[in-house]
């Protein structure tokens, strides 16, 4: 569960500030966030992930007050509790598909890479149609395959929250549907909360709830 309460955040060298009075996402809930560019959608995702720290208010994920954690604990929290899916996939181009999926386990001591984890990664990848491409370099994948690999990476550690920032933004209409299917499947299987920033209004009906960020910041919720 995600909870934001009386949050206020301002970038140090900018006039932009974000105020969120109250925002809750239940376990297993799929929330779409829409709104114009620059309205603070990505900033909110970064605040939930603990990448940014609010100036005031609280951000809790699964009962953990993220803003009260030390830097090191926030990093450990992020890698164990939050899965990221980015618009540009953000895969590591010099690694294979499997190595990319396992990457979080190799860059943090909070996750331990075992044979079981590796086996789970393979099952997850096979489930998303990447079974025959595990040892290929990610540069050899199509856009849709890249995003599926990114979803595998996000889901592997069974995170409490998936934060998707324009995850379908670089995909063709057919792939958009497939990627959303894959994302929803993973989320439903693990009871993970999903907050997805998107500009694709045609996908909105598939979410449990849609938040128009501009009006949301003003106090309304769609």
């Amino acid at each position: 569960m995600i909870g934001i309460d009386s949050l206020r955040f301002q970038y140090p060298s900018s006039d932009f500030h974000l105020d969120i009075a109250d925002f809750q996402v239940a376990d297993g809930e799929k929330v779409a966030v829409i709104g114009p560019s620059g309205s603070g959608k990505t900033t909110m995702l970064n605040l939930i992930a603990g990448i940014l720290i609010p100036d005031a208010g609280d951000v809790t994920v699964n009962g953990i007050a993220v803003n009260e954690l030390s830097d090191a604990k926030r990093r450990d929290f992020r890698i164990t509790n939050v899965g990221f899916v980015f618009q540009d996939f953000e895969l590591i181009d010099y690694l294979s598909v499997l190595d990319n999926i396992l990457h979080p386990y190799r860059i943090s001591s909070a996750l331990v890479l075992t044979g079981q984890v590796r086996a789970r990664a393979i099952v997850l990848a096979e489930g998303l149609g990447l079974g025959g491409k595990l040892h290929r370099n990610v540069t050899q994948l199509s856009q849709g395959e890249k995003q599926r690999a990114a979803i595998c990476r996000a889901l592997l550690a069974n995170p409490k929250v998936i934060l998707a920032d324009e995850a379908t933004g670089n995909l063709d209409p057919r792939n958009k549907g497939h990627i959303l299917d894959a994302l929803f499947e993973g989320v439903q299987a693990h009871g993970t909360s999903l907050v997805a920033v998107t500009h694709d209004h045609e996908l909105l009906p598939r979410f449990d709830r849609v938040i128009d960020f501009q009006s949301f910041r003003a106090g309304d919720e769609t």
Binding site: A49, I51, A72, R75, D76, F77, R78, I79, T80, V82, F84, F86, E90, I92, D93, H103, P104, I107, S108, A110
Partner: peptide
């Protein structure tokens, strides 16, 4: 820089980046 930002956002510490 982009790759380093990604691993940082995923939860990698600066120490780990330096170690890499």
């Amino acid at each position: 820089q982009r790759e380093l930002n990604t691993v940082f956002r995923l939860g990698c510490s600066r120490y780990t980046i330096m170690r890499l």
